[in-house]
Design a protein around this nucleic acid. Structure first.
Length: 278
DNA sequence: GTTAGGG
DNA sequence: CCCTAAC
């Protein structure tokens, strides 16, 4: 019969971490009931959340014997789950490397990336939840918050910018003026999140290989991702979109997040799974 | 009805 | 992931 071994996707993992950051560990039912994370965890039970959290915790700190080639940046970053629920103000440090996710990956190239895939989203939500500003927080505030908490890559600000744009596009975040805030009203109609509105792709031609600006590049790659979402099961379209995104990425400097996103999508498509970008 | 732990 | 005991 159908295998129930559903692999945890990056979105689910991110939702779980964000949920723990908001409600605290052990409040699985609350996380599951929260409209903010519910659309991501529709196929997961509170038991599943607990199990996943346990697995993450163990895989993060274990490795006492084999010591595989991991990131040199692991260090000792409070890998153990915190017992006792801290207030949101205390901001429980959740440092789980999402490395356990990507394993098979694409056979094309790179097997050493394994960068903090989408752990940024959890940080963003954590920051916004903690700051709790009426008008939201601007980029600098968010960067500062995360900066003093985790180590930040040099391109982190640009990375964060695209990520914020993406989250806004999906309706998870709301942008007012230059500030971002969590949108408590989740646009989940019934069972289909489908936050993608009209979706207008400018269809930017590669032309002579010169792009207008970095922002345009990011946007183009972003629209490529949307195309993939639209195509859903069609892997060939996904591959096309990935290739296009890759082309653009090479020209831009903030390659990181877009590439990661595209690869994630490609991975899911290759397995013939439905992708819900939400 | 939920959560934590063992299988 | 499923089952079971404890809360």
């Amino acid at each position: 019969m159908g295998n129930q071994k559903l692999k945890w996707t990056a979105e689910e993992e991110e939702a779980l971490l964000a949920g723990i950051a908001k409600h605290g560990p052990g409040k699985w039912k609350n996380i599951l009931k929260d409209p903010e994370f519910a659309p991501f965890l529709t196929h997961r039970s509170n038991i599943d959340l607990k199990d996943k959290w346990r697995n993450l915790s163990v895989s993060t700190v274990a490795q006492g014997s084999k010591e595989k080639v991991r990131n040199p940046k692991i260090k000792a970053m409070v890998p153990a789950p915190i017992s006792g629920v801290q207030n949101a103000s205390s901001a429980t440090p959740l440092n789980q490397s999402a490395t356990s996710d990507a394993v098979m990956d694409d056979p094309s190239q790179n097997a050493q990336d394994v960068i903090p895939a989408s752990r940024y989203d959890a940080m963003i939500f954590e920051a916004l939840s903690t700051i709790k500003d009426s008008n939201g927080s601007d980029i600098s505030a968010i960067v500062s918050f995360i900066e003093q908490k985790h180590e930040v890559p040099p391109n982190f600000r640009r990375n964060l910018t695209s990520r914020l744009r993406r989250l806004v596009g999906y309706g998870k975040l709301e942008k007012v003026q230059n500030c971002y805030k969590i949108k408590k009203d989740t646009p989940l109609a019934t069972k289909t999140p489908a936050p993608k509105q009209k979706d207008v792709w400018p269809r930017q031609p590669p032309a002579s290989g010169v792009v207008a600006s970095n922002d345009t590049v990011a946007d183009a790659a972003e629209t490529a991702a949307y195309r993939v979402a639209e195509a859903e099961n069609k892997s060939f379209l996904a591959a096309e979109a990935v290739k296009e995104a890759e082309r653009f990425s090479k020209l831009a400097e903030d390659t990181d997040s877009i590439l990661q996103l595209a690869k994630e999508i490609y991975k899911q498509c290759s397995r013939g799974e439905i992708i819900h970008l939400a």
